[in-house]
Design a binder for these strands. Sequence first.
DNA 1: ACAGAAGCTTA
DNA 2: GTAAGCTTCTGTT
Length: 979
Amino acid sequence: MKKGDHLFLVDGSGYIFRAYHALPPLNRKSDGLPTNAVLGFCNMVWKLMQDARNTDVGIVPTHFAVIFDYSSKTFRNEFYPEYKANRNAPPEDLIPQFGLIRQATVAFNLPCLEMEGFEADDLIATYCKLACEAGADTTIISSDKDLMQLVGPTVGMYDPMKDRQIGIPEVIEKWGVPPEKMIDLQALTGDSVDNVPGVPGIGPKTAAQLLEQFGDLDGLLARAGEIKQDKRRESIIANADKARISRQLVTLKNDVPVTDGLDDFVLHAPDGPKLIGFLKTMEFTSLTRRVAEATSTEAGDVQAVAVTVERADTAHGPDVGSGAPVSTGTNEAAQAAATADTARAGDTPSLLSALRLEAASAAKIEPGAYVAIRDTATLKTWLAQAKETGIVAFDTETTSSDPMLADLIGFSLAIGPSRAAYVPLAHKSGAGDLLGGGTLENQIPVREALALLKPLLEDKSVLKIAQDAKYDIVVMSRHGIDIAPFDDTMLISYVLDAGTGHHTLSSLADKWLGHATTPLKDLAGSGRSSVGFEQVDIDRATAYAAGHADVALRLWQVLKPRLAAKGLVSVYERLERPLVPVLARMEQRGISVDRQILSRLSGELAQGAARLEEEIYGLVGERINIGSPKQLGDILFGRMGLPGGSKTKTGQWSTSAQLLEDLAAEGHELPRKIVDWRQLTKLKSTYTDALPGFIHPDTKRVHTSYALAATTTGRLSSSDPNLQNIPVRTAEGRKIRTAFIADKGQKLVSADYSQIELRVLAHVAEIPQLTQAFADGADIHAITASEMFSVPVEGMPSEVRRRAKAINFGIIYGISAFGLANQLSIPREEAGAYIKKYFERFPGIRDYIEATKAYAREHGFVETIFGRRIHYPEIRSSNPSIRAFNERASINARLQGTAADIIRRAMVHMDEALEKAGLSARMLLQVHDELIFETVEAEVEATIPVVRRVMENAPMPAISMSVPLHVDARAANNWDEAH
DNA sequence: ACAGAAGCTTA
DNA sequence: GTAAGCTTCTGTT
């Protein structure tokens, strides 16, 4: 072995156990011999060997060996008999597989090593050292932490089941110490599985911190008296000998007197017939076939090696496909087309819709007709034709799903069915090239292409069609192009069919065109091995990208007429389409987030959580994973036998906050600490630690992404990051909001609707008492309580108001006695009585609920007061619980959806109103009933009345509500104080 | 690597 | 009892 060689050492014993537990049980068909771990092992080794032949992927081994434990007794037992003494015997169906896996190794022509008295890990350590001395690199195929001490500049690990490389940084990331300190860390933490004692009360976090402070274990033990925490200091002093013996146990022996030399491990090409013989014996048909193909062996000619399992194996490929794909869309297409009689197209919207649908299902998609445009002359021809036609579908291809980070790689155009083209701009070659690969030839320079494209995209006389136009609008806006006018097939579908499924290009193509789109991962791969779109081959990119434009155009042809046919044009044109540029601007603006505030909070939360962790470990008596509901449930209700346990639907003990709160109220100490720990770790992981990662490198602001068509009710959703669930209820959580700040000289203005859904309820259900109460500006929950319980509002006990408030919210959610009982922690009978009483006092609400259910049952959808439709196709289900769920959802949808429509209208009108008032305020965020703006300090006082006016009058002139809307607004330097 | 469950955050 | 999205753990490829 020499420098440049690469040794692969497979931890065979470690892999056997992991594969056995990870893979479903598998038995040889002919005699029931258990083989799941054997198959897992063979697949893994085969994949490693295949990768070895593929120089494009990963690391290429030149030497290869598989290493096993000889027996459970090793030299460690001589000085510590308890070592691994508490190991259970392996499962019965694993035992026969140990021998089989050794035979598999031999069948693969690989060295199969083991030595009496030593663990596999010791052999691995020894060969690592030898390889290192020879100047070669080593990769250990394992993810066992016991081996991480071996990681170094020339030694890495690879976890084949998670496809993860483990190097020095990964060890530090996982354990907080570099590999050379892993021994000391393990000596401190111990290992309950291997019965390594360690120091009680010291886990990986504490151990890492101590090693950081004291350098190494000897330093720590020598200066243990300096440790501040009493318990920790005492434990370490008292258990110093345990730590030392633990260190001996976990230190791998790297001078095992091995007999084989590294040169015996040279990797040879697999011996096809030998390997296939074994695989056929195991009856692994699929792997046999793959090996046969790869080794050019005729599997049928190879005999299975063991006489006991003689079987005529046919190693031919499986049949693929079973006729034409069936899609719901083709049925619907056929139905709709059938309603079209002989009248001419265009006579009525319904007829046009039907004819379009018929045409769409008839016109097959022909990717062969797509062209790649690679010179300006051709591009100009296409752009001219698009201008002539007046309609063009447009789609961008980029490097990221986040439009603020996406680099433009190309764009596609479609001007008629199958008349689509892709314009590659920045495709590159050479995926593995350290220089990133050069830009490919024969691509129009980006600036030149965009200069030609800009007039078309901004041409008022040319309609641009896009699927999810907001994405393309943001990307092109960053290149100085304002796409207008446009239609969005995703939004048209959303208006037509909210509640019936997703509105992605692929689902719409399947539903309406009976066409299966190619997933991006087929071109660019997925996960760790994925590449940017710039690496995708231009021919494949053309089929993909031009296909998207083609499909979008066809969908538009089918869907657009349906808007008119169903009376939904105004919903689309007033509530959906105009919101797209508004949201695009909000996303591009982003909001400033103070890194330092979050960092300080993160530190505080970490400290609080660490303190609670130690306290919890103390109470539990061992270092459980507090984040594991499974372990928590077993400890609380199993070992500690706490009362009141309930099970989740999967049979696990429930450890919900509600349940733990109840236990805490009974005086139990542990549940309270767990609830507190959860709050701190939640705030830390979801907010203080995650948010800084979203700060944009250029703008230094956080740009969320709003989804327009993700909810059934018409609400927006926010993601990457979600800025609609920033904490507000607790004082601790609200601190997160102080990190959302206005820029220097500016203020944040927050304006939120007060009780908007209850106001909508009062309006649509026409409830005189509620309408009056809102008109009077009264306390709505107190009025409700007063009506129900005949008590005066003055001096009302807070508990009475609380119950009325819960009922009001319950109505909005489609009330049930079960849910109300849960919310108020009262018996279901009592909750039922409240509801009955409520309906007696507010009969209009019962009428409203019944009318909504009847309407939904009859039509399969409900509508908001602005005409938005929300479908509930399962409302006629014969399953009572599904039916009841859909009834509650439909009751809620009219209210939540109407409120969503109102704020959408406000947002659509807001920018123009501000501009007309000469104000520079910019809308940044929407949180369902709240809008957040940023404006210069001097304009705050002028801005608030304008914002309030637009929001409060948002339903006008479409609807004049019988209930006034009320908006609270205030300004401050951060979101916490503004809210 | 990915999916589902459990849990928690918001309106 | 409604509507969302994100993180961690767990089991399975």
